[in-house]
Design a protein around this nucleic acid. Structure first.
Length: 422
RNA sequence: GGAGAGCUGGCCGAGUAGGUCGAAGGCGCUCGCCUGCUAAGCGAGUAUACUGGGAAACCGGUAUCGAGGGUUCGAAUCCCUCGCUCUCCGCCA
């Protein structure tokens, strides 16, 4: 959410910069609501000041009957206040509803562009595997090895659900443990295991609501949502809190399943593990002081990249353009992993700086100094990594001519020493 | 699911025959004094948001005692609804 006061004072700039996302802002609506709000607020507060004053006078009267006349007047005033406050509440709700649908302002360095076609490749790491045969897509490898069962996954739940079997299930679990150990032991993140369903406040805090409700699974009977990413519960850990400046940056890592309806992506990536309704992800989340956030973004990105380096899988880092960054993001780098079976790069991580956008929605602040005024923190997060897609990358990059798959060395300790799935 | 207790400032904790309570007191913290150092001691200060004025320092107003509503001239204090925490019983992984 943008700061109403900032918006009031910088309407034109904000409008121009949101335009680069391909988003229009209803400036006239904002002006009107904001103006009406302040007008009503002043009316209400003036009357309340009067009432408080008279009320205090009444309380000081020794002869109680003397106050009767003023009580009658104040009854009138209270009625007026009530009426004004009702209008005020309505206006504030409208204003809030409006502000919650305005996306974040892209960082000035975020490349201008309309779609993913305008994203910028920042760097590429690693080599393509030398495969002197026609590489297969992971769904063929997985089915032939009997470690991925798409048909039975569909039987259990439906399309976009997969049953992992044997070494496949183990591989998923190995990757989760490998990533968590890397981030906690080497990168010094604190491991968290949050609830997998959250309330509406959390979803609003990180920006999924109110605009993207159709992408979320909602439970029947209770107002809970299944989390689409650990970003939601983990960022909301500090919702409504004032942190100490000295404890920043705070770095959390969490593995959770993620649940997404994938509405609007019918027919896309229908084969294999790429686009599932449920998938595992290891997520990195940081809370930082505003002046450190972009440094921390580079660090966080590096931590996510490190997973693929250790697995020795080729990837590239892409900087998303203004037209492609997410609703809450000011700047985003995607990590795209090379998939020989599909002869393309696929997103495996998305690392973003949200500046104070989520912090303002969720009320996450810090005191720079012991007695200083609280300021909003900056929040960041990135996948470190999407586990299902990492399985895809391992299967496709480590496949052998005979249909077996080598286990990357870094993973072998997590696979009970297994060197090859065959 | 049943019965009960509770939710006050960074923390602990007063405060119900409604009035001067943003809220005693303590701890913590900050600054100053004192003191070879530290500790102890002494003094002062120590919430947040919105809003008006001001270049600013700052000054004023309003709101906030889990959340929302009600009664009242006036509510931390009374009434209602909801949330959360805790204890006991039942059920269950």
């Amino acid at each position: 959410m943008l700061d109403a006061r900032y918006l009031r004072e910088n309407l034109d700039t904000v409008e121009a910069r949101l335009k680069s996302r391909g988003e229009g802002v209803n400036i006239a609506l904002f002006r009107e609501l904001d103006g009406r709000r302040r007008e009503l607020l002043q009316q209400s507060e003036t009357l309340k000041a009067l009432r408080n004053k008279v009320t205090e006078e009444i309380s000081r009267l020794k002869d109680k009957s003397q106050g009767d006349e003023r009580k009658l007047q104040m009854r009138e005033v209270s009625q007026q206040i009530k009426g004004i406050d009702e209008s005020l509440k309505a206006v504030e709700e409208e204003l809030q509803a409006f502000l919650l649908t305005v996306p974040n302002i892209p960082h000035p360095t975020t490349p201008l562009g309309k779609s993913e076609l305008d994203n910028v490749v920042v760097r590429t790491w690693g080599d393509e595997p030398e495969l002197n045969f026609a590489p297969k897509p992971h769904w063929e490898i997985g089915e032939q090895l009997g470690i991925l069962d798409f048909e039975r996954g569909a039987k259990l739940a439906g399309a976009r659900f997969t049953l992992y079997r044997g070494a496949g299930a183990r591989l998923e679990r190995a990757l989760i443990n490998f990533m968590l150990d890397l981030h906690t032991e080497q990168h010094k993140y604190i491991e968290m295991l949050p609830p997998f369903m959250v309330n509406r406040e959390c979803m609003t805090g990180t920006g999924q609501l109110p605009k993207f409700e159709e992408d979320l699974f909602h439970l029947e009977g209770v107002d809970f949502f299944l989390i689409p990413t650990a970003e939601v519960p983990v960022t909301n850990i500090h919702r409504g809190e004032i942190l100490k400046g000295s404890e920043l940056p705070i770095s959390y890592v969490a593995h959770t399943p993620c649940f997404r309806k994938e509405a609007g992506s019918y027919g896309k990536d229908t084969r294999g593990l790429i686009r599932q309704h449920q998938f595992n992800k290891v997520e990195l989340v940081k809370f930082t002081a505003p002046d450190r956030s972009y440094e921390e973004l580079q660090i966080l990105l590096g931590h996510a990249e490190e997973v693929l380096r250790r697995l020795n899988i080729r990837y590239r880092v892409v900087e998303l353009c203004t037209g492609d960054i997410g609703f809450s993001s000011a700047k985003t780098f995607d990590i795209e992993v090379w998939l020989p079976g599909q002869n393309c790069y696929r997103e495996i991580s998305s690392c973003s700086c949200f500046e104070d956008f989520q912090a303002r929605r969720a009320g996450i602040r810090f005191r720079p100094e012991e007695k200083a005024k609280p300021e909003f923190v900056h929040t960041l997060n990135g996948s470190g990594l999407a586990v299902g897609r990492t399985v895809v990358a391992v299967l496709e990059n480590y496949q052998q001519a005979d249909g077996s798959v080598l286990i990357p060395e870094a993973l072998r300790p997590y696979m009970g020493g297994l060197e090859r799935i065959s």
